[in-house]
Amino acid sequence: MNLSGSSKSSPNKKQRIGFSVWRDPPASGGWNMAADEAIARRSEETNSVLMRLYGWHPHTVSLGSFQRYVDFSETPELSHWPVVRRPSGGGAIIHGTDLTYGLAVPGSHDWSRGTEKLYAAVHGALVEELSERHLSAYMVEAPGRETEQNFYCFNRRAFGDLVVEHAAAGSSHGNHKILGSAQRRLSGVVLQHGSLLLHRNPHIQGVGSHLGLGDVLPAGSGSVNEVVDGWLQRLADRLHGELIAETGPSYVKENKDIITRTERYESTAWLQRR
């Protein structure tokens, strides 16, 4: 298994590593998973850190790599939702009012070593940004095992999850998880997926309904977009990298590799593999 990356040489520490970020248009679940896999392979080939930010159209449920399909299909409130299985682990996420990221780190980079460094970097950068904006946030350190197996990602509490403290009219007082991530450790590259809840999804009720960043951000603290921009810059600083805001999508629609990967993610064999 890939615990510490490939045998490629590490970049010179004095040389600022490129950190390319694309803001891709909303796409289907299968396409998004395939496009993430594509940047992971490109990250390995180019020995660079690459990130996609994207939404979902239509709104879609994603399952963790090993979650049971029946746990989705037997959840009545989700029966009409499109669904996809991620290559990464973790719990189910209802996408549509979140900002999802796919971050690919080559095996030569220090962040690919172990699982915790990458979480600490990505989530820690957002904790800093939120604290700057007077929103109390922290990363979970030692969760109870019981919550780790909850069906929904945002009902779980695992190491590194980003939680904010908030009390507002109409919502429960307390700690709200707004960012959760999970990794797929491939040969020579680590792909980390994460979902930042932006707003409560109006199309879901009950235990699958959660507050988002925009619901808890104090007045006068800036917009959600400004928070995301600040988060990315802090992440680039932690990387000692140069943030490159790429224009246009990270792919071309005719890319045969992504089309083939999409077909696999949309296949029943993959979706119902467990």
């Binding site: 615990l3 290559p87 990464s88 682990g89 695992a158 999970a182 797929r184 450790r185 491939l186 040969s187």
Partner: peptide, 8 residues
């Protein structure tokens, strides 16, 4: 799969 990562 560990709590936070899937590995081959």
């Amino acid at each position: 799969e560990s709590v936070k990562a899937v590995s081959d």
